[in-house]
Nucleic acid binder design. Sequence first.
DNA 1: GCCATAAACGGACTATACCCCGTTTAGAGA
DNA 2: TCTCTAAACGGGGTATAGTCCGTTTATGGC
Lengths: 206, 206
Amino acid sequence: MPLGKPRPERADAARNRELLLANVREMLAAGGAGSVTMDALAERAQLGKGTVFRRFGTRAGIFRALLDADERSFQEQVLYGPPPLGPGASALDRMVAYGQARIAFLLDHHSVARAALDRNQPAPAGEATITRVHLRMLLGQAGLNLPDLDTLAVQLTGALEGPLLLYVVLPEPETPPSPAAGRPLAESWSVLVHRLLRAEPGTTPG
Amino acid sequence: MPLGKPRPERADAARNRELLLANVREMLAAGGAGSVTMDALAERAQLGKGTVFRRFGTRAGIFRALLDADERSFQEQVLYGPPPLGPGASALDRMVAYGQARIAFLLDHHSVARAALDRNQPAPAGEATITRVHLRMLLGQAGLNLPDLDTLAVQLTGALEGPLLLYVVLPEPETPPSPAAGRPLAESWSVLVHRLLRAEPGTTPG
DNA sequence: GCCATAAACGGACTATACCCCGTTTAGAGA
DNA sequence: TCTCTAAACGGGGTATAGTCCGTTTATGGC
């Protein structure tokens, strides 16, 4: 038995996962993230409560699972899509484009993204890390003459996502997500990145 | 009866508040933030649970109250202390100094500051806002030629505090707070601020 | 001192996340 | 098809945040 393959998920488990996620989406649409309780979800899906926890581990885990699919397709746009979000543009342009896209993404998924946060757990594992890793890479490509790009990437992640996840600069409950609500953030992000990546005065680029 | 004076806190209430906070500090020292439960606190202080909630409203409120005193003296350093943290230095220098001081503060109070966060509540009201407001003011003084300093201040708040509050770049449980642990963050903050406030090439200052 | 009243108090009650473990079942191999 | 085992399932149990409301008490005005 090859060690790298920890046995695929059993068919009934997979079926139930989908069933649960479908129910979560419905509950979400009907009553918002607050209405999704483990008990209610279990009952609605006609499953035991233990099953729900076995699938998702924690309440936040449900929302992480929900985010996952969209997050993956978002990531694909970033890695393989057309520039400037995808490869083929300058680091500067890509960073601005990434910020804009990320803000739009977090706006779209605002309620779920916040519900996916887990006090106790440091970083919502999959979710926030995409930003940190990608920004770190772009900083590297930008040819900055700076020592600690890792830390800078963490801080920029905070600048980009913090306003939407921590200091909630948005939206009134039940407000349908206005597409332009993130405009100021995107605008300001662009300024921040432009100034950060701007060449040192009196330095030859290279 | 003057409307602005909503009646001072009753003596017994004040006494109990102190009693509770003292007990919280002891529990904190003994078993960490996780060991501070409302029931345990109430019992330890020989008070009813209802009283604890009446005093602090919510679990996070306890930690906010704990933070409050230190936060106030921190704020005083910023408003009236010696430069560069206090007034009397350039906006740039003050912003760098503020970042350094804030990082040290959050490091010192890391466990309490995180416990003061309240899912549900957007921003930990008093706590995070100090940073936002102060950065906003300094940005104004810096004479930047930028349109939306409010949003920029929020993003910088995220850059400064996000790493410590959201993406926990620190410390292993039970690690005594190493004073140098925030060095990379402070260093990187300095770089970020320097580049942000750097004069536009070909622009006359003023 | 005495009274009236607003505030504080207490602790039972509810809602909910998360745990445990005995029972059931899918699915690989004989 | 039968067996065997690891995985999945169920739902009662626990811990804990937060609510409610009847009771007690501090305190300002008389």
